[in-house]
Computed example of a mutant assay.
Amino acid sequence: MLREVTGIRYVTPLREGGSVPGVVEADDLGTYVVKFSGAAQGRKALVAEVIAGELGRRLGLRVPELVRFDFDPVIALGEPDEEIQDLLKASGGLNLGMDFLPGSLGFDPLVFTVDPVEASRVVWFDALIGNVDRSWRNPNMLVWHRDVWLIDHGASLIWHHNWPSAKAASAKPYDASDHALARFSPEPAAVAPQMAAQVTPELLAEVTALVPDEWLVDEPGFGSPDDVRAAYRELLAARAADIHTRITTGRSREQQPPPEWLRTWVEGKNAR
């Protein structure tokens, strides 16, 4: 089970994200970016965050710690935005928290560089989970202590929004031509044997077991939360075996170099 914390102070909403997550302090003295169960994307976005994030971590990629986050809307009564208040009121109880990385910078492929092997691993992983939300327009990566961290996987596992067609949808090719790391010459087929070998039945069982039952109950076509978990395991195991043969890669069309002032600032920061 994921570690559980309780919110004690609502700090601020993050309006950049479509689900409007919030920064919240918790009773373990940590600060978290909380994805709320009452958001328009619904509980399946939280399921995708858990499965994709915890799978990525076990594959050796950097993902901020995820926690079960108990949230009482009373702590956010001072939030003036009525739309945000409605979201928080609809999210009492269990939500999902992601460790807040203080001082991190949003990844910009025109500014930061990534080793081709790491880029290959990330592209293969994104293909595995069907992540449609890691383009150069919206990388969903952070740079923290000079390392790249992967965030925001709620838009992955997109086939789980329509289980009757899930097998057909998951068999489609994965287009990585606009991937945020496309300019770093990723070769996902080269890392596929090593990555796929790690996606064992035991690993998939461990990851899917981390999804709370309450986010899987009453799924149409399934008799229990464990039946839903089994469906996730079956699709991910099948994709791990051959997804590298269905990845379209290519250098991103975004070719403009960063402005000189930004390049100089980043070089100075990295030299500290």
Rank of each mutant, 00 (worst) to 15 (best):
M1A: 15
E4T: 15
I8F: 08
R9D: 11
Y10H: 13
Y10C: 04
Y10A: 05
P13M: 05
E16N: 11
E16M: 09
G17I: 08
G18V: 08
S19C: 08
E25I: 00
A26Y: 01
D27L: 10
G30L: 02
T31A: 04
V34T: 10
K35M: 05
K35Y: 10
S37A: 14
S37P: 06
A39M: 03
A39L: 02
Q41V: 09
R43F: 02
R43M: 06
K44M: 13
L46Q: 08
V47S: 01
A48T: 04
I51M: 05
I51H: 05
A52E: 01
L55W: 03
L55Q: 04
L55S: 02
L59W: 05
V63I: 15
V67C: 07
R68M: 04
R68H: 14
D70K: 07
V74K: 12
A76N: 05
G78T: 12
P80T: 06
D81R: 05
I84D: 09
I84F: 08
L87N: 00
L88H: 02
L88I: 03
K89A: 12
S91I: 10
G93T: 11
G97C: 08
D99Y: 01
F107T: 01
D108E: 09
D108K: 07
P109Q: 07
L110M: 13
T113V: 10
V114F: 04
P116L: 13
V117D: 08
A119V: 07
V122L: 03
V123I: 07
D126S: 06
I129Q: 00
D133N: 05
R137I: 06
N138G: 01
N138H: 11
H145Y: 10
D147W: 09
I151C: 00
I151S: 00
D152N: 06
H153D: 11
G154K: 00
L157K: 01
S165E: 15
A168S: 13
P173W: 12
P173D: 03
D175C: 15
D175V: 08
L181A: 02
A182C: 08
F184V: 07
E187K: 14
A192M: 09
A192H: 08
P193H: 04
P193Q: 01
M195K: 01
A196H: 09
A197S: 14
E202I: 03
E202H: 10
E206T: 12
T208Y: 04
L210F: 05
P212L: 12
D213L: 11
L216N: 00
V217F: 08
E219I: 13
G223A: 14
G223V: 08
V228N: 03
V228P: 00
A230S: 12
A237D: 15
A240M: 06
A241I: 12
A241W: 06
I243N: 00
R246H: 13
I247G: 09
G250R: 04
R253P: 00
P259Q: 11
P259S: 12
W261E: 13
W261M: 12
L262I: 12
T264E: 14
V266R: 13
V266I: 14
V266G: 03
G268F: 03
